[in-house]
Design a protein around this nucleic acid. Sequence first.
DNA 1: GATGAATGAGCGTTCATTCAT
DNA 2: CATGAATGAACGCTCATTCAT
Lengths: 191, 191, 191, 191
Amino acid sequence: MTKPEKRDEIVRAALELIAEHGFHGAPMAMIADRAGVGAGTIYRYFENKDVLIADLYRDLEERIYPAMLEGYAPDKPIRERFLHLGTALLRYFINNPLDFRYLEQFHNSPYGAEFRRDKILGKKEGCDIFRELFEEGVSRQVMKELPLVILFALSFGPLLAVARDHILGFISLDDALIARTIEACWDGIRR
Amino acid sequence: MTKPEKRDEIVRAALELIAEHGFHGAPMAMIADRAGVGAGTIYRYFENKDVLIADLYRDLEERIYPAMLEGYAPDKPIRERFLHLGTALLRYFINNPLDFRYLEQFHNSPYGAEFRRDKILGKKEGCDIFRELFEEGVSRQVMKELPLVILFALSFGPLLAVARDHILGFISLDDALIARTIEACWDGIRR
Amino acid sequence: MTKPEKRDEIVRAALELIAEHGFHGAPMAMIADRAGVGAGTIYRYFENKDVLIADLYRDLEERIYPAMLEGYAPDKPIRERFLHLGTALLRYFINNPLDFRYLEQFHNSPYGAEFRRDKILGKKEGCDIFRELFEEGVSRQVMKELPLVILFALSFGPLLAVARDHILGFISLDDALIARTIEACWDGIRR
Amino acid sequence: MTKPEKRDEIVRAALELIAEHGFHGAPMAMIADRAGVGAGTIYRYFENKDVLIADLYRDLEERIYPAMLEGYAPDKPIRERFLHLGTALLRYFINNPLDFRYLEQFHNSPYGAEFRRDKILGKKEGCDIFRELFEEGVSRQVMKELPLVILFALSFGPLLAVARDHILGFISLDDALIARTIEACWDGIRR
DNA sequence: GATGAATGAGCGTTCATTCAT
DNA sequence: CATGAATGAACGCTCATTCAT
């Protein structure tokens, strides 16, 4: 087994366990076990548990960004672009519930404190596309003239809540419901 | 020092520490220390840490509900009622950031798993008022015909996100901004 | 409630709880509760838990001694005297299982270490009657010429074992079985 | 230091401390200390304290049984067989006082409650040999026609008492005294 | 004198991390 | 390199004892 494969196994095991049982329910020994490596091996790839957790988070972001951008057409109207991004993100969460659960665990924990500013996608890559969209929307007077942070909240707030409800089984989202939900988000931010 | 005062000190200390550092970062000994009591004393008032955490949550709910209902006029139009409740809740969180942070910690943890369904205010009293409002709004065709769960998400999602941003200092909400935010939420759910 | 009554209640409660659940299962607070007194009150009558436990033991001894001597006729033959004492003791244990269980708990614990030498009845009063009997039996060549300690062992060993078995329900002793058991003990020590 | 050596050290330390001070007087930390290992190390070999205690007991049984059967001749007369077993057992206790003290602690404790019925050696292997002997003795009319439980009591009761007295230094048993004691036990049960 | 709330040392146990193999 | 046995600090919790009322 070569190096990157081992790292992947560790990351996968950690994601599963933490998503399912929280940080509390995922001791390093258990992660090592599930990954099929020795406990000490984890420390060859990650300095300590905090670093593992943070790296895992970054891995996640890098998976979400391309999923969101697939089929994205920057020259379409703002509304359509918003609907595309929102739908893609919500779909990603629904199709990757472990990722979603991990994200929630991470954000709501001391581990994620330093990353919190960045919301779902941080101020890095993934977020830029939304930021640009919002800035364009505001300047073109298509969206409400509200601080970016609030536009984010109006978009991601419902989106995350709805994803959680679906994953926890409180509701079952089909394509129609997803579309209507994202449209309702749009109603919240549009002029 | 009489009985209720000690209980209050413990509750206050636990709220502070848990809101600030999470459940993990608030050992019983530290809570006792901050409360100015012996470690064993906590167990005179709370059977164990889980019970302390759950009781703390219930205390919180009982403070939020009346704050939200103050000045509530059930005979006013649906929109105004929604704005009242949303504004009151957001204001409460802004004025009681510790309560808000605790609530978030609680919901996102095994402790709060059983309460999760109930969203912010549980399916108990506090939530009923929102549920009734939504049901009335839908049946009177003032609100979108969406599942209740989604209407909740469209309302509370942004509200909580905005509260978090304010408390973490990413934005400073004044009365005007609060009003515009809640109105944007309304735009999301209204027909 | 006057002083001696309170003491009695404490002693009774402690006996019950310790006999039933062992020293481990009988915290001072529980004893106080069962006795209907405050936790601190126990310390007016007993310096600490060890003293309570030792005093309780002495109380017990003082109840057993007269029970054993009732109807004892020092001028009867040695065999008959032995049978009387053995039967009386076994009967006492069967009729007072709590006392017996406590005695066992006590002897087999660090608390009883210093008393162990004295066997069931210590080298005090209660034991003297047996010692005298054994000494007389040996010197009159009615009993085996064995060290007193061994004669004690041959008498009390089976007696206690049989009492325990009865109390734990492994056997049900009736008058006939009691008599035959004590007679078998006699066979063990007699010439 | 390899694996079994560490386990052995822990078992030895636990045996010593528990035999000497009882379960209460042998905290895990103290056992670890005496064994020369870290506190957590014990838990690699024993799930928890209860399991350590029960395993220790089983270890003991497995040492006693063969010691008792060494040189045992099943075709010798019943009396001789009884004398052999009794002598061997008493000798074992005298030569292994720690084992004896541990056994007593164990039987008289909640830990040993489930094993109590089985007397010294449980109803497993070790005990069967005695049971068979008694059953044969009764059916051949060599022993008194008493319930097995009582025959056990008449045999083990004195044996254990005498072992205890020797170990506590109240008497010093030599070969002659051992023989005469076991013979006295035989007198108790024989016809 | 009686109380019982308060105490804190001490318990059994977990787990992130290390390091000899 | 990879391992996993070993570690010990830190946790949640109990309970004998004290002392203000």
